[in-house]
């Protein structure tokens, strides 16, 4: 079993081990912070070369999730591209691949701070999206209700019999749900950080990604 079932704002959701969020009732798959083209941007800006193929890797995982779920709606929750230049510089085979993934689905690009503004990829480009009780946006807004966001790349860690285990994690309380970053090469922000501590209610939960997604009280 590699999804964790939970309910949020009266929607029945599944946190997948890959870091994607699956909403069966709407056949909606949501992923956040793909950061496609990251190595290209890093090379462009700092001269450091990260190895290639990370975009390939991210899309391979996404393709698997799409194949298994057969999602009708895909919501990319922002920072899908590492920046607009990186989006424009993606090679043709990658663009073709994204187009193939989009075929037959409603595909929504939510704007992120890394990729504000329209992209030359098919699909809808939105600031935010509301479906039933849930609102999808990139960065968590104050006093939000039923909000699904990304941006922070949360991860959580715990000690189990002396072993420290640290993984990207979903964070969830009664008002918001924050998704882990889905892209390869995306670091993480510990749930202990002040900003996440302030954002999440005291009884928040963390769902660790991995072979068996596991729910724990959000470590702080």
């Amino acid at each position: 079993m590699n999804c964790h079932d939970f309910s949020f704002a009266s929607a029945s959701l599944k946190a997948l081990g890959s870091g994607a969020l699956w909403w069966p009732d709407e056949a909606l798959l949501c992923i956040s912070d793909l950061h496609l083209g990251k190595s290209e941007r890093v090379a462009r800006r700092s001269g450091q070369s990260l190895p290639p193929y990370e975009t390939h890797d991210t899309l391979t995982r996404l393709a698997a999730d799409l194949a298994h779920s057969n999602a009708r709606i895909v919501v990319c929750l922002g920072d899908s591209f590492d920046d607009l230049t990186a989006a424009a510089a993606l090679p043709d085979d990658i663009r073709l691949w994204i187009t193939r993934l989009q075929a037959g689905r409603r595909w929504i690009w939510i704007e992120g701070n890394h990729d504000p503004g329209p992209l030359e990829f098919g699909g809808e480009h939105l600031q935010e999206l509301t479906v039933g009780p849930l609102t999808f946006r990139h960065i968590a807004a104050p006093d939000a209700q039923g909000e699904v966001s990304g941006h922070y790349h949360p991860k959580a860690d715990l000690q189990a019999r002396g072993r420290r285990i640290s993984r990207p994690a979903f964070l969830c309380d009664s008002n918001r749900l924050i998704l882990p970053a889905y892209g390869t090469y995306t670091g993480g922000l510990r749930s202990h950080s002040d900003v996440l501590g302030r954002l999440m209610q005291p009884k928040a939960l963390a769902i660790l990604t991995g072979p068996v997604p596991t729910c724990i009280p959000m470590p702080r």
């Binding site: 079993m1 599944k14 298994h68």
Partner: peptide, 11 residues
């Protein structure tokens, strides 16, 4: 967390 009845598919 509601216990899942059975996963419908695997990822």
């Amino acid at each position: 967390p509601q216990p899942s009845n059975r996963p419908r598919w695997r990822v």
